[in-house]
Amino acid sequence: MIITNYMRSEHRACDELFADAEKSVIDGDFTKAEEQFLKFSNETLRHFKKEEDELFVVFESITGNSEGPTRVMRFEHEQVRGVIGKMAEAIESRDKDAYLSLAESMMILLQQHNMKEEQMLYAMCDRVIPQDKKEETLKNMDKIEL
């Protein structure tokens, strides 16, 4: 379960960063919100990069399937990236309503996505990837920078 645990804790960390930023927006503190949102988006994009450049690649090479689950996940990452872009614009233009409305779509989108990964993909990774390869993948993922 080391893959699941590692990736899941990243999801949780991103959730918390997201909630922090939203709270600041509700309080009207956009300077703080901007900083927190940047943290959230960096962490999320880094997490995606870890998956797309490492975990998914390993999974695809072992299962020989790059058209299956990982393709769907990559596609969903694109959707999330799109919303992150819009949210950044909203925060830049200090548009509280637009931000909160996007935040709602984002939360629902992200949770649907995370649940799929945690319930299915990571569990599969933990099952099909050999132990030593898993440890190597985790190490490689730690090195990934944006």
Partner: peptide, 17 residues
């Protein structure tokens, strides 16, 4: 639709929107 499909284990389950 989303809930049933993702609980049945379909990675391809469409997003609600």
């Amino acid at each position: 639709v989303w809930f049933h499909l993702s609980n049945q284990g379909y990675m391809e389950a469409p997003m609600m929107h």
